[in-house]
Design a protein around this nucleic acid. Structure first.
Lengths: 180, 180
DNA sequence: AAAATTTAATTAGCCGGCTAACTATATTTT
DNA sequence: AAAATATAGTTAGCCGGCTAATTAAATTTT
């Protein structure tokens, strides 16, 4: 965009250009601002939520793993399945599961069919801690979301969907740019 | 809530109870679902954004610090000011700034007035890297937010505000509960 | 059947987040 | 002025995220 006028533009043109610039500028600035706002909203929420989890000696990922195991047949999953579910790397899962094993929340069982494979099973203690935490989690989420109406919740679902789509597009752009 | 009927309720009452239960249940389930959705949206977005930052050997926090310094008089701030701005602990800032110093993005200057105090100043290299990154950042944010209309962006600002309020309420609840 | 490839999980090493404890300096109280 | 308190920043030690390299086993190719 060019802001040096060699001709002598009339007032209308200047006004138009300014408005156009202003519109684009504020629209763009708003996107950046929204991006920062999303990060701040998440960070502050997560900090508080982590404190709650800390009272039960859990991390967010550990909680998600317990929830996932709770619904699974035989309360068991493979590490790779946990990684897919959490959207994190297998290395991270190894660490997490080791901690959880040390704390007695899960147990590892080596498969005899495929000797590379390991099943992670929730223990009774894990189930008990999950059961104790769930109501607190529920209350906390209700408090966090208390100011939202039912229709606002629906809006957020749909808006998050759009942001996730945007993220996917960015991912594809970056991957194809990397191939060059 | 009780679902065993000792009396013989008419069809209407059953229907009513079911609806009421369903409504409450789905409303609550939706809040939990929305909470998970927010986490997922943020996590996937952040993973991609971190990849972009990684191309410039920056982390998100390092970028925010550079932006903050860029706008500051003399391109300088105290560590405590950075901590407040990022909403993170001073220990985290110490680590971050040490890394950034090693990479030549910032410099430390010990105050002679207050010997406890240190000023963190952005270097020319820091300014240059920031300048190189900004357009990429801009494009990435635009891609992520591309599916949102102007009014949707406004909605999100207002909805995030409500979530932040909810977080504050949770914080206060937890702090007062802790005092007991 | 042997070689090459793929897959499952782990390890090593980095970064950034936290809390708690510590050092050094300023400030306030007494 | 001395003692107590508050403040600025760092350090130690934990956790959880990542990538890259490694190990071991299964599968596919040849």
């Amino acid at each position: 965009m060019d802001f040096t006028f060699n001709d002598k533009p009339n007032q209308h043109r200047i006004q138009q250009t300014l408005e156009q610039f202003t519109d684009e500028n504020t629209a763009n600035a708003q996107m950046v601002g929204l991006f920062l706002e999303l990060q701040w909203t998440y960070r502050t929420m997560q900090q508080q939520y982590n404190q709650l989890l800390g009272q039960f000696h859990l991390s967010e990922s550990q909680f998600i793993i317990l929830m996932f195991l709770e619904k699974a047949p035989n309360h068991a999953h493979l590490p790779s399945e946990l990684a897919d579910r959490l959207g994190s790397s297998r290395a991270t899962i190894t660490k997490l599961v080791n901690h959880m094993q040390k704390d007695g929340l899960v147990a590892k069982q080596h498969s005899k069919v495929d000797k590379r494979s390991v099943t992670i099973q929730m223990t009774a203690k894990g189930a008990q801690i999950l059961k104790a935490f769930l109501p607190k989690n529920f209350d906390a989420v209700n408090t966090i979301m208390a100011n939202l109406s039912a229709s606002e919740i629906q809006q957020l679902f749909s808006l998050f969907q759009k942001i996730k789509l945007g993220t996917q597009n960015l991912k594809q752009e970056m991957e194809s740019a990397h191939d060059e």
